[in-house]
């Protein structure tokens, strides 16, 4: 709004509610109108404020993709790494300085497709990080190719007659590999998602939240599902909240019901706890615990 007009109308210029967490100097962002990624970022911002974690300690790491652009918009130490490697990059950050809180924010293709090996191993190790995975069922940034999450029969540019490959059930994968917190929400569930992120941020170890998200421009268009808004309506009508559901039963079929909720919340020693405890046992006083670069002695 133009400044004189604002004054004349007596409008009070408020700060953007998320100014603390967004890089306002990078807005407008690159995401399409009615893309859901921005909503996931909003939930993340709300969760960060609620979690009370000092923001200077939080690092966000993304891989490559539309979802991978999140790191570029958050006013935190943020790293836009390589395709599929956000999890190992975050592993290095965390182990290089155990005081950091590491969050991986990226897409389904990035985290589960090309980066799947890192995902399963980090869950197994219970590496301290929160993984937020935007699942839009497709490789959006490259123009809509088949993903490891594309539902059976769905159309993509490299499955132009429909997908015949069985997709991953992400919560089941995370659960079976040892993640301590596993949830799934759609971006329609803004508050529930934010609460879930807050909860996961306050957990130690490997937490995973799958965020079902409309890709209006590519996935919706190719599959004639209408606009992003129509997809939100679909989520509204078709998501079923079922906390504690058996993760084996969370497959997502093409335009079928989507089960959401918190499925796993358990305790397990983290990678660093195990490393430190074991070495204390073996070496006693001789063990030199590593506390980060500023931990001079």
């Amino acid at each position: 709004m133009n400044e004189t007009l604002t004054k004349e109308m007596g409008v009070i210029e408020e700060k953007h509610p998320m100014e603390n967490i967004l890089r306002m100097d990078r807005i407008p962002h690159i995401w399409c109108p009615t893309c859901g990624i921005g909503i996931a970022v909003t939930s993340f911002a709300i969760a960060l404020e609620k979690s009370k974690i000092p923001l200077d300690q939080v690092c966000v790491v993304s891989g490559i993709g539309c979802s991978g652009r999140v790191a570029g918009y958050v006013k935190l130490d943020s790293f836009h790494s390589t395709h599929g490697r956000a999890i190992p990059f975050a592993t290095g950050l965390k182990l290089g300085n155990p005081k950091l809180k590491t969050v991986v924010f990226s897409g389904d293709g990035d985290i589960i497709g090309i980066g799947g090996n890192h995902f399963i191993h980090s869950a197994r190790r219970n590496m301290d990080m929160l993984v937020l995975c935007i699942n839009n069922f497709i490789y959006a940034m490259t123009g809509g190719q088949l993903a490891a999450t594309t539902p059976l029969t769905a159309n993509t540019s490299t499955s132009p007659y429909g997908n015949y490959e069985t997709p991953f059930n992400l919560p089941y994968l995370a659960d079976s590999c040892g993640a301590v917190y596993v949830a799934r929400w759609t971006v329609l569930h803004v508050r529930r998602l934010a609460n879930s992120i807050t909860e996961a941020l306050n957990k130690k170890g490997f937490s995973f939240i799958e965020i079902i998200c409309p890709c209006s421009t590519i996935y919706a268009r190719r599959n004639r599902l209408g606009s992003g808004l129509d997809l939100m309506k679909f989520y509204h009508d078709n998501s079923i909240i079922k906390h504690g559901a058996n993760t084996k039963e969370l497959d997502i079929g093409f335009q079928q019901k989507i089960i959401v909720g918190k499925f796993v919340d358990r305790e397990r020693p983290t990678f660093l706890e195990s490393l430190n405890d074991w070495n204390r046992k073996v070496f006693g006083d001789k063990f030199k615990e590593y506390g980060g670069p500023d931990d001079g002695d």
Binding site: S81, P88, T91, G92, L93, N117
Partner: peptide, 24 residues
């Protein structure tokens, strides 16, 4: 300090870049 055996060399190298930026 910390040694970690990663799942492959892609991971090792990515982790090294992350660790470098955390000051190690």
């Amino acid at each position: 300090g910390i040694f970690i055996q990663m799942e492959d060399e892609l991971a090792s190298m990515a982790a090294v870049v992350g660790a470098s930026w955390s000051g190690a």
